[in-house]
């Protein structure tokens, strides 16, 4: 790493030359992979898997079995597809970590973000896929077992949030301490909102209905609006940060001999 504390652009705009196209090719490629992964995840989880908007938590064993039967094909197609591309989560964390390493706040926070999001993806993403795929590929199992898989999938998907809280916290700290202004400070504050919604979402373990259940207005819908806003802002800011890089932007690592 030559200089994580160097400025992001490293170019002189007053040299009269035509501005270079921002961002190296690999950064632009990974950025678009990030965008494509989040789009695919939205389609797989929302349209096919039916996990968002969430189904009701206050249902009987029979209702759960009927629900899985009704959505069997969508869950199987959507979630098998997501299992295949699940590595996109790592790539997505990597590109954010890359920009965090450009910050003057240090590499440790970047590694902490990648690690926290990586660990969080197991209960927050994979376990939902595994539970609901098991339920739809083994429909002959006891209805109570199917109900357990239904609950486990949803509570794991929306209610296991400590790792994400840590990830958003280190991202916010990194941005607030960064003097290179890779991301603006207001994005740190939006990340802090994410922490608050994640903590409030813990209530869904206790409630089967109402505003604090897993399909509740406070624990889910307001939180998902904030998450959507966070992702949209992140896409815009990473595109801007990638565009600010030129061929003269210092490399993160020393060139190989």
């Amino acid at each position: 790493m030559t200089s994580a504390t160097s400025t992001l652009t490293g170019s002189d705009p007053a040299d009269g030359e035509r501005p270079e196209r921002g961002g190296s090719r690999d950064v632009r490629l990974v950025y678009w992979l990030f965008a494509a992964f989040y789009t695919a995840m939205s389609v797989g989880v929302c349209l096919l898997g039916r996990a968002t908007p969430p189904p009701r938590p206050d249902v009987t064993d029979l209702q759960v079995a009927l629900w899985f039967d009704k959505h069997q094909l969508g869950i199987q197609v959507g979630f098998v597809f997501l299992l295949v591309i699940a590595g996109g989560a790592a790539v997505s964390n990597g590109i954010i970590g890359y920009f965090m390493k450009r910050m003057s706040s240090g590499k440790v926070l970047a590694y902490a973000y990648i690690a926290a999001m990586g660990v969080g993806a197991i209960p927050g993403f994979h376990l939902l896929l595994i539970c609901w795929l098991t339920a739809t590929f083994r429909p002959d199992r006891d209805e109570r077992v199917l109900h357990l898989l239904y609950d486990l999938g949803m509570l794991s998907y929306n209610g296991s949030l400590g790792c994400f809280t840590a990830a958003y916290a280190v991202l916010a700290i990194a941005i607030l301490y960064d003097r290179n202004r890779v991301f603006p400070k207001w994005f740190a504050y939006i990340s802090i909102w994410q922490i608050v919604t994640e903590v409030v979402a813990t209530q869904m373990w206790l409630f089967h209905s109402g505003a604090l259940a897993w399909n509740g207005m406070i624990t889910f819908y307001i939180a998902v609006v904030i998450f959507g806003l966070w992702v949209v802002c992140l896409l815009h800011l990473m595109r801007r940060a990638a565009g600010a890089e030129t061929s003269r932007t210092p490399a993160l690592y020393a060139r190989e001999a």
Partner: peptide, 26 residues
């Protein structure tokens, strides 16, 4: 202050407003 903190404050007021409306409905 600065524009960043205003984003935080106005956004926070909006989301707390959503919580308050939800409470009032229930």
């Amino acid at each position: 202050g600065d524009i960043d903190m205003w984003v935080m404050v106005l956004g926070d007021l909006f989301f707390f407003g959503c919580y308050f409306v939800t409470y009032m409905v229930f």
